[in-house]
Design a binder for these strands. Sequence first.
RNA 1: GCCUCCGUAGCUCAACUGGAUAGAGCACUGGUCUUCGGAACCAGGGGUUAGGGGUUCGAAUCCCUUCGGGGGUACCA
Length: 662
Amino acid sequence: MNIPGLLRERFAVVLEPMVEQVDNLLGMIRPTTDPKMGDYQANFAMPLAKRLQRDPIELAEEIIGKVDLADLADRVEVAGRGFINVHLSDDFLAKQLVVISQDERHGISKPIDPQTILVDYSSPNVAKPMHVGHIRSTVIGDALSRIFRYLGHQVITDNHLGDWGTQFGMIIYGYKHFGEADKVKQNPVAELSSLYRYVHELMGLRAGQKRIDQMEDLIAKAKDDLSTLEHENNASNGDDPKSQKKFNKKLKSLRAKRDSLLKEQISLQEKLEIAESDSSLWKDLSDHREIETAVLEETAKLHQGDETNLRLWNDFLPFCIDEIDRVYKRLHVEFDHTLGESFYHPMLSGVIERLEKLDLITKSDGAKCVFLDGFEAPMIVQKRDGAYLYATTDLATLKYRLEEFNVDEILYVVDSRQSEHFDKLFAAAEKIFDQDLRLAHIQFGTVLGKDGKPMKTRSGTLIGLEGLLDDAVTRASEVVCNPERLASFDPPMSEDEQKDIAESVGIGAVKFVDLSHHRTSDYRFDLEKMVSLEGNTSTYVQYSYARTQAILHRVGADGRTSWDDGSKTPPVISHQAERELVLSLLRFEEALQGVRQDDAPNHLTDYLISTARSYSRFNESCRVIDAGNEHVKNTRIMLVRTTGEILKTGLDLLGIRVVRRM
RNA sequence: GCCUCCGUAGCUCAACUGGAUAGAGCACUGGUCUUCGGAACCAGGGGUUAGGGGUUCGAAUCCCUUCGGGGGUACCA
């Protein structure tokens, strides 16, 4: 049910004879900001009046005189400076309720022009443990894919795995020097990831050793710069306020730099001291002084097709994939394709050839570059040493997707820090491929800790995703399975049921929090608050759903009423809370269209919260089973059933499960 | 230095892309009900949308500027 669409059609009939290009004007039909003013408002009379040099109020009056809304609205009026307010009739709402309650798709219309949309999301580096940073891409990409598919588009999901990078060089190096074949065979996933972590640690310590040698010089220089600046200022005393300000700013930044260097020095010293106290670690560190270059060499050998490394890669990869699949399973995320970087490796030289043929390559400092208008730095496609880069793989991937999937749109759900990379990629694509398609970087902000800084553990590593999910489920379980609540359940909840509910609530909470923030903004991840299970949370929505099911259960069957069997007495709206709820249910499509328009799932989370709230109010003031009047009772059963279905569908589109009771 | 994003209630966040009196949730204050499963509902206080200027019927939103913060910036992904 698309009410604004319907209103647009009706108003178009009136506007089209008056002016050209009415699309913009019709776009100004939207829900009212305040329900007192009606249900929908049309704001086009004001700009139109300007264009026609007329009085806006008069013009609005003329328009409502002509528009035919008799079957939809019982009140259409002009207010303020020329706003047109539409108040839908209860009769119309009641009829539409029947329509959406009987339709499997809840009255969602099919797109006029269905698109083939490829969504590229999640894309973790395998072999590294997944951390909080991965959650946004995975959850947002999954939700967008589900929603677009539900709207009637053809959606292809692709997980562009990082399965060919330095991290494999690290694992291979680790295996060759510290690995034990038996152990790896017995428990590959744990063993490989611990090898990865160990090499990672050694590399970090080694880098720290190198860094600390330079520290003294760096600090001396920072102090030097600072005193030079101070000296300069003394010499040019009595300058104008503007340059004084500039000076202060510079001073501040130099001081900050000095302080951060001092801090870094201390923390490095601490780290190294701790490492030194671990004798076997310290020995490995001194035995592997060239670990960084050695790891790069192992990676390079893999890429060149070295037999041993390739065999190890082939052996290890499935285990790494098992590892991430476990997380996906828990998050209920699936992909149509998982074409990682390794898949495109054979095509990379072809990309360079093509670029050379098109005369787009310039050699600079020994690297092959594509210079693009409007960018200071070029897009480097082949390093001085001959190795290919991220950009090269992305171009190969793009080419493959164009040829193989014949797409209309490609959405890259990736961190906003990479926006420059995508700007360049898209600019280059325009030069290389002459195909009319939409390439979009669906960027998102960072997940921050409670303190507003990126989430890290005390040791400085990013917080692991699985541990985080475990925490959420544990906290959810503490609330869901608190004995006082459990006592009121009849029949009682089995342990399996309790577990199932805790899992749904805990995982749902993490996902919903992520999706309910506008994707472009950073947000603070506050586990305490999230699992407090209050406020604008998935729990509230899940709980509302459970309440609908409890009532339907008591009514018997699944709440089907005589309307569904062909008797055509329309439902009756007898209470304000019913009216609000019906209107909310009819707006499901608006919410989904909002997601589509902005590629932003928070439109749907907002909708679900507000619908659940309407339902709570309804639940508070409208009895169902003992409504008294059969007609009212039947209407309410229909409302409860449809609400349940829409809440469930909505959560499902966000990848969140519901349970029948909780 | 250059580019870019952001600054909204005490806190966490919205605001349908320029619409009417800027909304929710926490927290706070008060209230409802012998609960169709109360994890509920209702009411209230709380705002110079960082500051200033501009554009127009109309600005949190667009432009300029100041302040404050994040991110990016040639061989990582």
